[in-house]
């Protein structure tokens, strides 16, 4: 009973309220709920940011979840092996999860800084970034020597930080990870993957260790190679638990704002804008509660589909 009460009060009431808001013209300044039909929805959909956010929301969610699932399986397989110092590595892997995520992300904000980013430093030292003199660095040195041998055309050195703008090629001194269209979403996804990986790895690891020892021995005696053993036995056996972890990850990522709020706030020019953060910007910062509610409700169908999938998954998979 308390659980039902809890869900009704903390989930049901806000949900009903947000539906009511979305059909009205409520703002923080005028909290009377006046019914305006679909007008709020029309306004939201007509906003060009809506489409960007919607697409980004899916890109952000799907790319990071594909990466998280793939990497967590690889990581879990590695951690399931017996090697000295295993507990220490497991501890390291779990660290991002136990770090308060806002703090961890602030750390990344410095790592991806426009001027002092350590990544840029490494890239510059290697010669991947064009610098003022156009000299130095391992890659540049390499292309210089290849050039002197006549093996490559001149000026083929990799310049990650240059873009063609119209007729001109513009080079920044830094990568500006969070400031450029091409790298901003990638950076956000990478940090989100860093953050989600530990939990997923632990879940997959639990799945791996729950495979009976006899089954693993049988695979060894049956004499199949490692790849076949993985794809035909290990993967199918961890599929249910990995599937659940992935579905939960999808729901979590789809509605998550932390990484985006700390790193980019949706910038540059809404290139990393997603629905939940946009809803916050419109509804809370922009005081237009009705639009905020309408935006947030656009996520509902997707979440519903995933939730139904989770429930079906759980009820279908009875243990052998």
């Amino acid at each position: 009973m308390p659980a039902v009460l809890y869900i009704v009060l903390l989930v049901g009431v806000p949900f009903a309220l947000s539906i009511a808001y979305s059909f009205s013209d409520v703002t923080i300044g005028d909290q009377s709920i006046d019914f305006v039909g679909l007008e709020t929805y029309e306004r939201v959909v007509d906003n060009p940011v809506f489409q960007t956010s919607l697409v980004n929301n899916f890109r952000f969610t799907l790319f990071s979840q594909v990466l998280v699932t793939t990497l967590s399986i690889i990581l879990a397989l590695a951690l399931a092996q017996d090697f000295p110092g295993k507990w220490f590595f497991r501890f390291l892997i779990l660290l991002p999860w136990v770090t308060p995520i806002a703090l961890g992300t602030v750390g990344w904000l410095y790592m991806l800084d426009t001027i002092y980013s350590p990544f840029d430093y490494v890239l510059r030292e290697l010669g991947f970034l064009a610098n003022v003199e156009g000299k130095g660095g391992f890659v540049r040195g390499l292309t210089d020597s290849l050039q002197s041998l006549g093996l490559v055309e001149s000026d083929t050195a990799l310049k990650l930080n240059c873009q063609v703008r119209g007729e001109r090629e513009v080079c920044f001194f830094n990568m500006q990870w969070l400031g450029q269209d091409q790298t901003a979403l990638g950076s956000v996804i990478a940090v989100h993957v860093w953050r989600m990986l530990p939990l997923s790895t632990v879940i997959v690891l639990a799945g791996l260790t729950s495979i009976p020892k006899d089954i693993r021995d049988a695979v060894a005696v049956d004499g199949v190679g490692h790849l076949r053993a993985f794809f035909e036995v290990t993967l199918p056996l961890i599929a249910p638990i990995t599937g659940i972890a992935t579905l939960f990850g999808l729901i979590y990522t789809f509605t998550d704002v932390t990484v985006i709020a700390v790193l980019t706030k949706g910038n540059p020019a809404n290139e990393t804008q997603v629905l939940p953060y946009w809803a916050y910007l419109k509804g809370i910062q922009g005081t237009n509660l009705a639009e905020g509610a309408a935006i947030a409700l656009f996520m509902f169908p997707f979440l519903l589909v995933i939730a139904v999938l989770v429930l079906r998954f759980i009820s279908r998979r009875e243990v052998t």
Binding site: D214, I215, A218, V221, D222, T320
Partner: peptide, 18 residues
């Protein structure tokens, strides 16, 4: 094991459940 040309029956049978 696979180089030894033997096969084994386990106490739990260790059939592949899937």
């Amino acid at each position: 094991p696979r180089a030894r040309n033997l096969s084994m029956v386990f106490q739990s049978y260790a059939l592949y459940p899937h």
